[in-house]
Structure formats: C-alpha cells, structure tokens
Amino acid sequence: MSRRTWQRPLGAGGRDATRAQVVEAIDRTAPETKEELACTVGISEQYLSELLQELKAADVVRKGYVVDDSALYDNSRHISKLYGSNTSVAEIVSNEEIDDHGTEVLELLDRLESVTTRQYDAARAAFLGESVEHSAKTLESLTNERYSAVLAELKSYTLTTDWPGNRVAADLSTIATNLEIVGDRACFIADVADREGTDANGTVGERMADIFASGARINEYFSRILFDCDLAVHRQLRDEEETVHRDLDELFELVTAYDPDMYGHLVTVTRALERAIYYWVDAAELAVQIHSGLQPDHVEI
C-alpha cells in the first residue's frame, strides 16, 4: 500500500507535541542512537529519556527506536474522528462533538464514492448492452470535481492536525485516489465496449456479469467498513475477493476458446475490471486499519 508523506504543522507546543515530534522523528529517520534522536528533535537526552519511557509504556515505541504502527493508530483517537466509530455517516455528521474537518472529509468521501459507483454501474451496463441515463464518461467531470474537493479538505485537515494525524490523512488520501482510479477504469471499460462492441450472450457474458456483481458487493463492503465502521464484513469482503479471483481465472481459460481478436478484447476489459476491484479492496484494507489500528492481510487480486 502506498503511503504519502504529510508535513507536520507548525505552531504546536507542550509535552504532547514534543512526544509527537519524537515518534515522528523515529518514524521518518530511524535513528541509531539516543544522541542522534535527541539532536533531531532538538531536546536534551535526559528529557528524551523521560519521553521514551512514556512512549514505551504506551507500546508506541519498541526497543531499537521502532514505531509500533498498531499502537500508533490506537493512540490517534483524538486525531482520527473515524477511529473506533460505530455510527453511520449521517449520525457522525449530526454529532456536534466531531471535528469539522473530520466530518467534512467523511461527507466528501461519501459523495465521491457515490459517483464512482455510478460510473462502475454505467460501465457494467455498457458491456452488457443495457441502457443507462448517464455514461461513465459523462460522470467523469463530476468525479474529478469531488476528488479535488476531498484532497483540498484533507490538505486543510493536515494543516490543523498534529502528527500522527497526518498518517490518517495520508490513508484517507489514498482511499480517495483509489476511488478516482475505479472511476477511471470504469470509463475505460465503457469506451472499449462502445468502440469494439461486446457479445454479452452465452457463458462468457454470464461470467462477466457475475464478476461485475462481485465487484459491486465488494464496493458495498468497503463502504460499510469506512462509513459505518462495520469491520465484521471484512471477512465477507475477503470471501468475495476469493470468488472474484476464481472467476477471473476460469474466465481467462474460457476466452482462449475464442479467436485472437475476441480474446484480446475480453482480456482488455477483464484486466481493467480486475484493477477496479483491486482498488476497492485496497481501500477497504486501509479503512480497517484506520478504524482498528490493525493491518489486515494484504489484498490478493
């Protein structure tokens, strides 16, 4: 999974801010000695020793100056307003105690997910020869607009949040990017279907319809994990992912029975579909980590 580096905001003070600087320095520079770490942070070794004792007691830092990612997320409750929530987006938005930026990020991500889902449905309809009110390409400008809005809010979120909150912001940025890529892959599938035409009849068409349906279910599971903190469905998502894996393998074997032109066309579409589903699964993995502090098994597609 990709991680973006988000700079720590200026102006923070106090012991808590210094502790955050220590963890940040360890995470970014991997110092070999206490002297090197103290110099990087700009504090005395004695003061550093006191802070390290607190961080080790909280299991945030292990021996050898290594940051424990699980504990890091666990201690980001006051930063990540998504963390540990078992409420829906609507309930979160109505909670006055929730930070304005956290609420706005959730709302914007929800809006982005809704339009990329419409693009995916439009791509499925294009391949299966069904009519659709708005094509995936027509919706692309709306996707780009909502994607830009998420990134702009995350930038503001980062500038007003102490590290390691920027770790959470980086994960949310990756989730937004994954959704934008899903929309992009949907446009590609629809373009290929319109340009080349498809034969959605017979066994191949049925298999493709099944894979599209599995992708839609994976997107639903991802949304429940991110917006509703329904971590229990992660197991169902993994089961669905295994089903998609098997269906794709069987489809590749099946299409070899066609002539080279038809085979190439189907490979192009199925590869784009495969990548769209991958980015939903990857986003779900990040959402699990944001909420639980635990990193699930990596995606398989």
Results as ranks from 00 to 15, higher is better:
N178D: 13
L159H: 03
P31W: 10
L254C: 04
A190R: 09
D100M: 11
T143R: 15
G64N: 09
H245D: 11
A287N: 03
D194H: 13
H234E: 13
L179K: 07
A149G: 02
M208N: 04
L10Q: 08
V61S: 05
V60A: 02
R195G: 01
L112V: 08
R62S: 13
V267K: 01
D100P: 01
R124I: 08
Y73M: 08
G202K: 07
D74M: 09
H245T: 13
E253Y: 08
T161Q: 07
G84H: 05
L248G: 02
D230I: 11
L37S: 05
E241H: 07
S173M: 13
L106I: 14
T256R: 07
R111K: 15
D247R: 15
L82P: 00
E240C: 08
F222I: 07
Q295P: 00
L231D: 07
C39S: 02
Q53A: 05
R62D: 14
A272E: 03
S223M: 03
L251V: 10
Y263N: 04
A213Q: 13
E107S: 12
W163M: 06
S114F: 06
E253H: 08
D297R: 13
S292L: 08
A17L: 03
V267L: 05
V67K: 09
R167P: 00
C229Q: 11
S49K: 08
F127W: 12
G14M: 08
L55S: 03
D110R: 14
E107M: 15
A186Q: 05
G102V: 14
L154K: 07
A287K: 08
G293Y: 10
Q295K: 13
R8F: 01
S292M: 08
T198R: 01
Y47G: 06
D16T: 12
E50A: 02
Y47I: 01
P31R: 10
E50W: 01
R77F: 08
W6A: 06
H101S: 11
E140H: 13
T198W: 02
W163H: 12
E241A: 09
L154E: 06
T198N: 02
S135V: 10
A193L: 07
E250A: 15
A209H: 09
C187W: 02
E285I: 08
V89P: 02
V288K: 06
L179C: 01
A276K: 09
D239G: 00
D194T: 11
Y278M: 07
G197L: 06
R195Q: 10
A216H: 10
S135A: 09
A71Q: 12
S85P: 00
T268R: 04
V192M: 03
I175C: 02
D110N: 14
R217Q: 14
Q119S: 13
L248R: 14
R3P: 00
R111Y: 07
E242Q: 14
I26E: 01
S2V: 08
Y279D: 07
H291W: 06
H291K: 11
G264V: 04
N166M: 03
I98L: 12
L172G: 01
V115R: 05
G64R: 10
E45P: 00
I98P: 01
L82D: 05
E36Q: 14
E104Y: 04
R111A: 14
H78Y: 09
I181V: 12
V61W: 03
A284L: 06
